[in-house]
Structures are given as C-alpha cells and as structure tokens.
Design a protein around this nucleic acid. Structure first.
Lengths: 211, 211, 211, 211
DNA sequence: AATGAATGAGATTTCATTCAT
DNA sequence: CATGAATGAAATCTCATTCAT
C-alpha cells in the first residue's frame, strides 16, 4: 500500500517535473526566437520562465541542452503533414499536404524559429533537427513523384528536383511566417493557398492551349 | 609636379586602404558564415584577416559595422538576375532567370550565409539587407505574372502566390548551397536545373492528356 | 510563522547585500583616492574589495556608478559642520564651526579625495557632489555675515567675499590633509587651529593700536 | 661662411622646433584641461595641435613628458606675484600681492587646470609642480609675518597658520576660476577683491569698538 | 528542488606607441 | 621631420555556471 501511495506521489512528482521542464523549454524557445540563441542569456530565460537562474540547471545540464531538447521534441509541420497524407487523386492529395503543412500553432513558432536560427550556423543541430527530417521528407516526396511518373500520371523529369520544388514552394511561404514578418494564415487562407500551389505544381502557370 | 606626385601617392594610399577594408570584410564574412555573427570573435576575424585585433577598428567602428558594410555591398543573386532578364518567350525568360540566379561565386557564399544568418534574428539587418530587396524582386515577378495573365498566356491565379512560388523554388535549391550542405552547381547543372524548374513552373508536373 | 521566518531571512539578506555594497564602495574610494578615477582599474578595485571582478557588477551597473554612489552618500565636512553650528557670540560660533569642519575621519578621506579629484575634471560630478553643496554653504555664511553687518557687529564689506574668505581659509588647511600630504590634525590641534583662524578672521592679523 | 649660413639656418630651425613644441604643449594643455590627463588621447592632442599623432613623439618622448614639460614651464601666479611684491606699508603690500596673484591670462588657465588636476593624484607631479613652489611661497609669507610680528606690527600668532590663511583666501577665489566655473575677474574687480581681502586679513571682519 | 550571489573566463574596444614611407 | 596605419596590451563589462543556503 505504501508502495502504491509512493507510486502515486512519485507519479505526481514526475509529472510536476516534466511540466516544469516544458515550461522552461517554452520560455527558452520564446527568448531564443526573439534574440537568437547566442544573444539570449540564462537570466532572460529564467525571468521568462519565472524561476531562478540556478533552477534552470536542475532541469538542463547547460544552455545548449535546452536547444537540443527543443530539437528533439519539435517536429517540422511538413514532416507531420507528409506522414498523414491519404492517398486519393493527385490534386486532393497535394492540397491536403500543403494544407496540413501550414497547420501549425502560435506556440510552435518560437520553437521553429529558434531551431532554424541555430541550425543555420550549428552543424550538430542542423543534423539533429533538420537534415534527417528533410531527407526523410524529400525521400517520401521523391518516391511519390517516381511512382506517379512510372504510372504515366506525371511527365518524366528529375524526381529529386520535383521533390525540392514542392519543398521550396512550401518553405517560401512558411519561412516569413516563422521569421515573424508574415502572419500565420487562417484556416480559409490555408485552403486557398494550398489549392493555388497545388494547381501551379500540377498544371503549371501557363494557360492550356485549346484545341 | 608635387601635386601630381601627391595625387599619385594619395591615390595609391586610398586604394590600399580600400583593399585592406575589403580583405577584412571578406575575412569577417568567412568567420561569420562559419559560426554566426554572435559566436564569432574579433580575435578570430583578426586572425583570419591576418591583422592585429586593433587594426580592425581602424577600418570599422565596431563589430556590427562589419555586418552592416556587408549588407550594403552584397547583392542577392536573384536580385541581380531579375534586373538582367531579357524579354523573350516565357520559357526562355524563366530559364534565363533561374540560370542567372544560380550564378554566384564561391566568394559570395560566405557573405550571403553570414547575412542570412543574422537577418533571421536581427530586425534591422533583415530590413537593410533583405526585406526591401525581396519586396522589389517580388514586385517584379508579380508584375510579370499579372501581365502574362492579362495577355492570356497564363492561367488566372493570385500573382502574389505565383511570385512566391517562383521565389520558393529558387530558395529551396539555393539555401542548402549557401548553408554549405549542397555543392555549388556547375554551369551544366545550372542549365538543367533551370530548364526543369521552368518546365514545372510553366506546365506543371502532371502529364498532359493526349487527345 | 513562515512569513516571519522569511522576513528575518530577507532582512538579513538585505543587510548583507547593503554591507557588501558599502565594502565595495570603500574599496573603490581607496583605489580612486590613490590613483584617480580614470587610472583605477576594476581589477584593482576588486582586489582591494577582495571579490571577483564580476561581483562588482552585481552591485553597480558600471564603474562610474560607484563614483556617483560615493557622491551621493558622502557629505563635505564643512557642510555638516555649518548645519550644526549653534548661535553664541561670534568668536565661539566661528571656533565651533572651524573645529567641527575639521572633524572628519580617516575613512572619510578616501571618499573626499576621490570625489574632489574627479569633480575637478567631470562637470556632472562637480554638479552632483560639490556645486550645490558649496552654494548652500556659501549662502549660509553669506546670510550670517550680512546679518552681523546689519547688526553693526561686523564692518561693512562684501558678504560674498567674506563667505569666500572663510571657505578659503578652511580649504587651504583641509585640502593638503585630503590630498594626503598633511596629517589629520588631532583634537587638540583642531582646537588651536580653529581659535587662530577665528581670531584672524574676526580681528585680522594687525596689532590693535593702543590708545 | 658656410658655418655662418648654417648657424643662421640652424637658428631658424631651432626656433621653429621650439615654437612647434610650444604649440603642441598648449594644445595638450587645452585637451588635458578639458578632460583630464588620463581621459585625453594622443589623437585628440594631435588634432588640437593640427599635427599627426606620430609627430608628437618627435617632440616628446611620451604622453607623460608633455605633462612634465608643462609643470616645468608653468608658474603659479601667486609665486610670480610674491617675488615681485615691493615693500611698502602692509596694506599696500598685501593689496599688491593679491592683485598681482590674480593677474593671470586666459592662456595660462588650461595649463594650471591640467596640472592641478593631475597633481591631485600624481605624487611626482605634485612634487615637481606644486610642493616646492608652495613651500617656497609659504616660506616667504611666513618670514614676512614673523618679521612683522617681531616689529610689533602684527599680533602674536602662529606664522604658519597666517601664511596658510593668506594662501587659503587666495586659492578659495582662484580655484573656481581655474576650474572654469567662475569668470576671470577684470582689472577693476581684481582691485576691489584685493582690497577687501587685504582688509579682512589685516583688520578682520569685526567692527572696532569705538572708545 | 529552489535560490541568486559569486565567480572568472572571455568578449569587445581603446589607445599609447612604433615604424615604414 | 611628418605622417598615420598597425600593433597589442590592457581596460571594461557580460554571462554561463557553480554552490552555499
């Protein structure tokens, strides 16, 4: 019985610790996002998280570990989206992909912004946070494209470039949002966005000649 | 005669100073590119430029001024490319644009990498280096798209998204190169790249139905 | 009870912090006094205060703030003396004034020396530390002199110059002490000093003609 | 003949060098006076003197030598005055002394201000510039006072304190002028000043009792 | 666990002095 | 002699991390 009670108490304690860790991480993300990792001080993070500086070190070994913890727990929205895409006709699938990829929340932005910032400069973080994920995304897209080409549904072209084109279209719209210079699109805007991009991607911008 | 001699001497001196300034700036760009502005020390810059630390301050008021000097003198390749594009048929024009936009040199990369890195975090730099330029590029593209839609050559769609799609395709390929995780494409690769992107953009990836 | 305990702890903490601040300030005063503000390094101050350099900045925002903190808390002895002088017959009052004005301690000297040093060169400090105080002292003296002239007790002469003469006599004796080239007078010496100065001031050096 | 010509040329050269040295010294005095020795940079001195930084070192071994050169060539006005005082009746002599002591020019002020500033902090300079001179002045005054006491013209009192009182009265008026917070008195003001001080010194401020 | 004062390594910047031209 | 760019030692200040409470 004591054991059970302890389990209950320990469980609560574990959860409290985990929650506090998350709060600190979110605070750190906000600070990193605003000023960049290197320009952020542990004092600012502590203030933002409303704890003492020393407390940070009860949850993370050092400042960098906060960044790595973020990298591990933050998913890129495109990654999430691509896993979930259902197989339908091409247009519906692509629209679904783009639409889902734009579905990320206000609270995710600081994490993404902080991580992208550092990944631009820090090879280890690039690897940990981005490279493998992007490689995975690119592979999925490449496979899809290859398969559609084989099926005769797509023209014959380099599937790698095709995958990159899709990703580029997406990042071109997402980066300003994450950087904070463009607003997060609303649900309706996301739909329109996705449709337009899908049409451009699938059929191009050029008018079809009637015949 | 003395005047002439002095002019010659002063001219040489002016050039020597300008050259040294450029050397320091290039060294700073390499260091900033490798580690990010905030993680770079003036000591490293001085070492890289092979001068004493104090010497840096004979050419720049402070570390940040180096960054700003870079921002002022560095052009984004897409910007340069878009100014030079000649008006031909659409496919030729788009290919020419992409191809030119990829024509940047090994020495430009550190500057671009350093500036993009900081612009991600530093609003003043974003404004100074990127925002106005990108706005200009986007405007050019938008106008082009609008005009082609009016002419009936392009389908009807949001010209802003069209411009963004072009820029996204481009940045999706360029950013890894600037980040240093993809190689600078050779001239031949640039050609192929440009053709494929142009075709995807103009006609889409979907196979045309024969009729 | 916890609240009370906390109050006790916080109070102790507050006092410890205040005490440490004072220690640092005294150390800084000694260093500034010995070498002048501009020639003193934070390293020397830290050594003198027996703390790490960084610790200084937990108590003062920067080196200059130490100086300003000194200026705010240090009184000029003449100022203190003039507030305390009791109204008696003129000779007793003047003696009391001079005697009290020389009553400053060994520990005050570094503060005075440091502040006078910088005030000679730094307009802000001159204003903050000296000007207003001296103006106040001068006003008090001027009023006293004017009143005694009106009462027919003093000859008719410019009260401003009278006030200045008193201050000059005082500073002429005090400055070498603060500068460290004359010893701090003992209590007995102070008495003799004050009497002689008072007699010179009141009756002059010239022998009275008997009649 | 060549020798003679050389002498003429050398003489001119010597004078030119001496003149330039003086110009630099005056420039340095102005800069030191404005910001204090330690806060003045050789660059500012060079600018003020309208020469290159390197040129300074053709005339002075280092920055400090400029200060020492100033100390050697600058006389304290009181010193000059005391040497020139003619022996007349006491009142005339004292008036003459004070009046002459206030006769210093606008160009002397920077030198005095610079030197007093540093002498407050720098023992070597104190010795070189002030101590010996003040000791000399004090001795002259002391002797004068002693002699007048012996002659029965002055009351009996400590001649040292008498000398100090005179010097104090003088410095109390002069220091604000040198510091730059009081204007240099005009010739007429000097006369009135000297008379008032002389009367206070000789006969005191107290009204004589009629009898 | 939480706290926050103390630490000291390291960063940026200044500036007296040198020396090649 | 004049010049002024180069130098590098030294100064101020910041901040991640530690540790006694």
């Amino acid at each position: 019985m004591t054991a059970i009670k302890n389990e209950g108490r320990d469980g609560r304690r574990q959860r409290r610790i985990a929650r506090r860790r998350q709060e600190i991480l979110a605070a750190a993300a906000r600070v990193f996002a605003a000023k960049g990792y290197a320009n952020s001080t542990t004092r600012e993070i502590a203030n933002e998280a409303d704890v003492a500086e020393g407390t940070l070190y009860n949850y993370f070994g050092n400042k960098r570990e906060m960044l790595l913890a973020m990298a591990e727990q933050t998913e890129t929205p495109l990654e999430t989206a691509i896993m979930a895409v259902s197989r339908q006709d091409d247009r519906a699938a692509v629209i679904e992909l783009f639409e889902a990829a734009f579905d990320f929340s206000e609270t995710q932005i600081p994490f993404l912004r902080a991580l992208l910032s550092e990944a631009w400069v820090d090879d280890e973080l690039l690897e940990l946070f981005l490279s493998t994920r992007l490689a995975h995304i690119e592979e999925q897209l490449r496979n899809y494209v290859s398969e559609r080409i084989s099926a005769g549904a797509f023209r014959v072209f380099d599937p790698i470039l095709g995958a990159r084109a899709v990703m580029g279209m997406y990042f071109g719209l997402m980066l300003p949002v994450i950087r904070g210079v463009a607003p997060l699109p609303s649900i309706e805007e996301r739909r329109t966005l996705a449709e337009t991009l899908a049409d451009i991607l699938l059929d191009g911008v050029r008018a079809r000649e009637e015949n």
